[in-house]
């Protein structure tokens, strides 16, 4: 794991990134995999909810809202 990787929750809005690792396991990990979040999947942070959490991400053509707890367990490399 290199320092260039940041948790998805810290990706600024409007920025694109590539998924590098999932650090969750069990059902939470499966749910992320079901979204197609495998290594090198491009993601983009789109929009925060009015109170700042969750955040909507563009993932494989779908818009998915993730709470910061989940997003912090996805490591990405910002582009």
């Amino acid at each position: 794991m290199t320092d260039r990787y940041i948790p998805l929750s810290l990706l600024p809005l409007g920025r694109k990134a590539k998924v590098k690792a999932l650090i969750s396991d069990g059902p939470a990990r499966r749910r992320m995999l079901d979204l197609g979040l495998i290594s090198d999947t491009p993601v983009e942070a789109l929009q925060k909810s009015p109170s700042g959490d969750p955040t909507a991400y563009s993932i494989r053509g779908a818009v998915i809202a993730l709470r910061s707890e989940e997003a912090s367990k996805i490591l990405v490399e910002a582009r």
Partner: peptide, 11 residues
């Protein structure tokens, strides 16, 4: 604690 969830915002 709240459990994780995924919410899709469909078109």
């Amino acid at each position: 604690l709240p459990s994780s969830f995924v919410l899709e915002l469909p078109p």
